[in-house]
Amino acid sequence: MTESSSKGHRTPGKPHSGVLTYLAGLGFAIVLTLASFWAAGTNAIWEPAVPILLAALAIGQMGVHVVFFFHLSSGPGDTNNLLALIFGVFVVGLVVFGSILIMSNLDANMVPMDKLMKMQR
């Protein structure tokens, strides 16, 4: 078997060229990090859009880490890992958004402190 034909058959999920993959991941991550810090400090962007941009950059960078550092792929060997990750993301979303939703609702329905003081008297 020649060198070139053995290169064509790689096990899915295993890192391809090694150093290049990690370097690409590092490059993407640095660009996304700098973009986040720039977006948070600049006046060039319409202000209400900045949190959404920050969230998008953070989620993108997490994706870069998962693909280039964890080498997680959608290949058949990674099905179990990917399913576990999707469930984990689902639980994280429930906990974070559920807590914020419930707490802001409770906060909005609270009796203001000065009225509470009058009621106790």
Partner: peptide, 9 residues
Amino acid sequence: SALFAAYAV
């Protein structure tokens, strides 16, 4: 994520 939720609140 629970700690993040606590911080956000």
